[in-house]
Nucleic acid binder design. Structure first.
Lengths: 203, 203
DNA sequence: TGTACATCAGTGAACGCGCGTTCACTGATGTAC
DNA sequence: TGTACATCAGTGAACGCGCGTTCACTGATGTAC
């Protein structure tokens, strides 16, 4: 009896999780193309195929949904990046850089959401803390690489600079008008490789 | 007679220009702190001390006002940067980098507006063209410097990378939470200097 | 097994608001004779 | 110089809309006896 009850409850719980994921994934789909302010709850509901009111059964408000969506995507992205870096033990810095920007370029929802955190100026401190966790995670990845290369001085500062530089390439050129996607990808990759070359001088 | 008429017309014209500047400067004041979507025409009117309807005597719509405001600020910023670079003939790359980010940091309306162009995704092509002009102008400044330093290969690519890297530093760290303005400035300057050091290797 | 009641996810419709923008008007200034 | 008319910058109030969010309800499912 108790067993059955638990099973049912677990079923319900997993159904609930599935619905929640559906909403999150719908919002990520939209946040990839448009900014936080230009994506509406009605848009998200429509993509998810539910009513706007339903979203509020799962999330407090739009802000919370955004943060949850970011965290969800961040976990996936960070995990994959770490795996990518770990699996190829003898990657050059250029490999790292190009893989990093290329992966972000391909999964542009994550990057778009990240820039919202960095530029909005109207985000609650608690949400920013969640974002910073992710940022620190990515910086740690770079730290790990530079350490392996024997860097001892200014390790974190170097990671900051490298991370920021790659971000800058993404932001400055990933929406360059009048070029098609493949041209942009090539340009971004070339710039990432160049940055890595330049950084290799001091490593 | 004709002379007097012309004078009066010129007076009127200059009054009109003054009002227009007032509106532009009010909008710049607001766009410095908040994003395009979160600044309203009523906000701008209030700062300018006029009625919202008046803005439409000077600008077609909010988009046009934004582009005009950006161009206005861009002219000032670019002019000053060029002068700064030209007046100090023997600046190191680190001087250039630090002055660049520090100046942008101090005039953050320009940078905030620039990132809107780079990240929004909902801007008309004609407006983007205006923005690109400014971007090219800044890239030309870096080109000039690298050329002077004897770079011949991949000149434009190097400028792209350097410009993007400095942008990245600004975007990634200029709104870092929990640090005061001076701490942020110091961090940004240090990163800019580090990037310059790194780039100096290949120059 | 059948019946009466409880729960709760889902939702259509509405609320209240602030937005970009327009309209119809005012009143100061300029022009003509 | 005085008067009648034209111009036009400026604006308060309104329009229509879409937003985030809430409410009151439905109807499917679970529970108790």
């Amino acid at each position: 009896m108790v067993r059955k009850k638990t099973t049912l409850m677990m079923l319900k719980e997993s159904e609930r999780e599935t619905r929640k994921k559906l909403i999150i994934e719908s919002s990520i789909f939209l946040f990839a193309k448009k900014s936080f302010d230009t994506v509406s709850m009605r848009d998200i509901a429509m993509v998810a195929g539910i009513s706007p009111a339903s979203i509020y059964r799962y999330f407090e408000d739009k802000d919370e949904l955004f943060v949850e969506a970011f965290s969800y995507k961040a976990e996936e992205i960070c995990g994959n990046l770490e795996k990518m870096f770990d699996e190829n033990k003898n990657m050059t810095l250029a490999d790292i850089a190009v893989n990093f920007v290329d992966y972000l370029f391909e999964h542009d929802s994550f990057f778009q959401m990240m820039t919202h955190f960095m530029t909005s100026g109207t985000i609650k401190d608690i949400s920013l803390e969640r974002f910073n966790e992710t940022e620190r995670y990515l910086l740690d990845l770079f730290d790990k690489y530079f350490k392996k290369m024997g860097v001892t001085q200014n390790l974190r500062l170097l990671s900051h600079a490298f991370f920021a530089a790659l971000n800058g390439v993404m932001i400055t050129f990933s929406r360059y008008p009048g070029r098609d996607k493949e041209e942009i990808r090539r340009h971004i990759n070339r710039l990432a490789a160049l940055l890595a070359d330049v950084f290799s001088c001091v490593v």
